[in-house]
Design a protein around this nucleic acid. Structure first.
Length: 762
DNA sequence: CCGGGGTCCATTTTT
DNA sequence: TGGACCCCGG
């Protein structure tokens, strides 16, 4: 402790930090790379560092730029900094995601890149629609060259910091016979005309701005005296360039990251950014946080042994003084269904021992894997939630609602106009839209302006003109009301008077009630902002999914989604060659892909505090057809002393031996011999049979026998509603276990607590 | 304007 | 296997 600046009069907030963490907090000058392994108190070090900058009076809040990747991370950092500093909030500080910070800068400098300060931020859906228009204008067959592919191409370019004039010839593929670059230019022009940006542009325009206008760059460089960057291993080239430009010339930049947790290479992240740090910043100080406060020694040992197989790491050795813990369990099963059953039973066992379901997570490689677990959990009545799926603002109804609001804010927002001019149906079909486009193009007008012009002529037939006029009048009326009405109130009026809410109210589909809920949430969210413009910015950049009501539920999600989270118990199913490591990653990226998969495995394991249970299935149905699968090579790479293997019998017969079990040496002995006493007990409990017998296909019959045959609430024929499956009627009752014929999805077994009588569903 | 039926496809995801 | 998407018929 004597080696640091505060040895004599140490600020109280350094108490409780270990030596490396202190170094991370107090090394303020120049570039610092903080290599923070999983669970090493990274966030604490980071937030304390930020506080230290202020308390030591090295910087004022407005002089610090703190960057994260996700809104969630930004929110968490804001909360922790505020708590540490005992401030009610840190609103207005330069603490946010790359995109929100870049947008904030861009709003102030918009003119320099040909935008107006109130530019619209398009999401990927708008982007796609715009690209389709651009392609149509260039007569490119969307069948042969899907707009989505072009979107991906452009996104990659933007990730690398290429404006159209900077794309190297070598990077132009054969999309649309080499016309992709031209399309990119045309798209960018179109965006400027619309006064709009896509996500990539936020960074890209910043780069252009700083390159073309050194004096502007200098102003921002002087402003931000200290930079803090989280998850540095995830930065792409554009983000890297942006940071470097802003950090110059003092390079007071602290980047926090973990090369072993770089799992987003496929989306443009460059691990090289972190590997190269010391070359980029020659005087950089590298600090390693290696003491882990999260996991047991066994879990750390397993994860460390695994990740040690990767080449080209900066290298860290995680250690803990905590509990040695139990070895990581590895369970082999017959097929995916058996695996889901196994996990379900293990969870029920944990539950009986008093563990909270909120402390259990199942982390899968691909989203599709959740399905088997969901079906099983629905059957046994285990509460669960799936993290993932479309974000709040990506939902159709939310985007429609937003389009109405955008149209009020900026009448010339053609994408918004197009989206909702016929939603609900007003008789403004394709033909009407085509006429509008023609007029708009010839007159250089927005669609809204073109529409206004057209309703004054007899070019459109009355049948079209009438509803169009009514629509325009409504929009005008709402816009006039903007000044006098609070915006949440106005939003409600708009959605009501437009008939949009009614459209969903009269929709009988399963999703309709949820959509109305989302619209309600949208309006509520609106109330939290002073202005409509402020709200629209928030939605485009910041709005997350509504968090499902937490509590007593098991969490199901992808390994990617789990980064940054931790649970007492983590299940890691599907560790099979082809699935994990994923075949496609291997095919497309070779060793690079394999290493990223391995890092993903590392991330998965290190999410666990107390226990990690890996499983694999010998048979798995993929795309409808059955296939035999082999245990993942990663299983073999976990050191012997940190794993304990168990397997249902007969998973691999002669075929497997013949294939050459030797390359997975440790699996030779799989089967009967490696079972621990604990596993025998677990097995006996599960199968209800003798320890040595093959697994019985579930004691379903037993369970059914043990419960009453009637249910006071449900009888055969009762109409019920289920959150996931919608409406259906009960076809069989066995106490709490109902068989229900769902209108949409057919018969399923469901526990009664998962449904309610249709009459109560509204 | 809807839905039925055929076709094609099939990691990972943020902003 | 199942979903997303498109086309066509009523």
């Amino acid at each position: 402790m004597t080696s640091y600046a505060f040895s004599f009069d140490e600020p109280p907030y350094l108490a409780g930090l270990n030596e490396a963490q202190r170094a991370a907090v107090v090394s303020l000058d120049g570039a610092v790379l903080l290599l923070a392994g999983a669970g090493t108190g990274k966030t604490r070090a980071l937030t304390t560092r930020l506080a230290h900058l202020l308390w030591s009076e090295r910087a004022r809040p407005q002089e610090i730029l703190a960057v994260t990747f996700t809104n969630k991370a930004a929110r968490e950092m804001k909360e922790r900094v505020a708590a540490l500093l005992k401030l009610p909030s840190v609103e207005g500080w330069w603490l946010g995601t790359f995109h929100s910070l870049a947008a904030r800068i861009l709003r102030q400098e918009a003119e320099a890149v040909g935008l107006k300060s109130n530019f619209t931020i398009l999401d990927s859906d708008d982007q796609l629609r715009l690209l389709k228009q651009v392609m149509a204008a260039e007569n490119i067959d969307e069948k042969a060259w899907p707009a989505k592919v072009l979107r991906a191409v452009i996104e990659q370019w933007k990730n690398k910091g290429y404006t159209p004039d900077l794309v190297p010839a070598s990077e132009v593929g054969d999309f649309a016979r080499g016309r992709s670059l031209h399309l990119y230019s045309a798209y960018q022009e179109r965006l400027l005309t619309l006064n709009a940006c896509d996500f990539g542009d936020l960074l890209l325009h910043n780069l252009t701005l700083f390159r073309m206008r050194p004096e502007v760059a200098q102003r921002w460089q002087q402003r931000f005296r200290y930079l803090l960057v989280d998850e540095y291993q995830d930065t792409n080239v554009a983000q890297y360039l942006w940071l470097r430009l802003l950090a110059m010339p003092q390079n007071n930049i602290c980047c926090v990251g973990d090369d072993d947790q770089s799992i987003y290479g496929w989306r443009g992240a460059e691990v090289e950014n972190i590997l190269r740090f010391e070359k980029d910043f020659p005087d950089a100080k590298v600090i390693r946080l290696e003491r882990n406060y999260r996991s047991t020694a066994a879990i750390l040992g397993a994860a460390s042994g695994l990740i040690a197989r990767n080449e080209g790491r900066l290298g860290k050795t995680l250690w803990t003084e905590g509990d040695p813990g139990e070895p990581v369990r590895i369970q082999g099963l017959w097929d995916g269904e058996a695996e889901a059953r196994f996990v379900g039973e293990e969870i029920e066992g944990l539950q009986r021992e008093g563990h909270s379901l909120g402390e259990i997570a199942i982390l899968v490689r691909t989203g599709a894997q959740t399905r088997e677990f969901e079906e099983r959990f629905v059957t046994i009545g285990l509460p669960y939630r799936v993290i993932g799926g479309p974000r709040f603002y990506e939902r159709q109804e939310v985007r429609d609602g937003l389009a109405y609001l955008r149209l009020l804010q900026s009448p010339d927002d053609d994408l918004a106009f197009e989206r909702i001019c016929n939603k609900p149906r007003r008789g403004l079909g394709e033909a009407a839209l085509r006429a509008l486009h023609a007029t708009a193009r010839s007159g250089g007008l927005s669609l809204f302006a073109a529409a206004r012009q057209l309703v004054g002529t007899d070019e459109l037939r009355a049948q079209t003109r009438r509803p169009l006029k009514a629509f325009l009048d409504s929009v005008d009326r709402w816009r006039d009301a903007l000044a006098a009405t609070s915006h949440p109130e106005l939003a409600e009026i708009v959605l009501e008077e437009s008939g949009y809410l009614e459209m969903w109210r009269s929709d009988r589909s399963i999703e309709a009630p949820g959509r109305l809920e989302n619209l309600k949430a949208l309006i509520e969210a609106l109330a939290e902002f002073d202005t409509l413009a402020g709200f629209l910015e928030h939605v485009a950049l910041v709005m997350d999914n509504l968090e499902e009501v937490g509590g007593e539920q098991v969490t199901l999600m992808t390994l990617h989604g789990a980064k940054g989270l931790e649970y007492d118990t983590v299940f890691l199913p599907g560790w099979e060659e082809g699935l994990f490591p994923n075949q496609r990653a291997l095919d497309e990226q070779g060793i690079r892909g394999l290493e990223e998969e391995r890092r993903l495995a590392y991330v998965g394991l290190t999410r666990a505090r107390k226990r990690a249970i890996i499983s694999f299935a010998a048979n798995r149905r993929l795309y409808g057809s059955w296939g035999a699968s082999l245990p993942s090579r990663f299983l073999d790479e976990i050191p012997e002393e940190h794993k304990r293997m168990d397997s249902d019998q007969g998973l691999y017969g002669a075929a497997y031996q013949a294939w050459g079990g030797s390359s997975f040496g440790s699996f030779d002995a799989w089967g009967e011999t490696r079972r621990s006493p604990g596993m025998e007990r677990a097995r006996a409990r599960r199968s209800g049979g003798s320890a040595g017998s093959p697994p019985v296909i579930e004691g379903e019959a037993r369970i059914i026998e043990s419960v009453p045959r009637e249910n006071p609430r449900y009888r055969v024929g009762t109409r019920v509603f289920h959150q996931k499956f919608g409406y259906g009627s009960v076809s069989r009752v066995e106490g709490e276990r109902l068989t229900i014929a769902f209108d949409q999805t057919g018969e399923k077994k469901v526990v009664a607590s998962f449904v309610k009588p249709a009459a109560e569903a509204g």
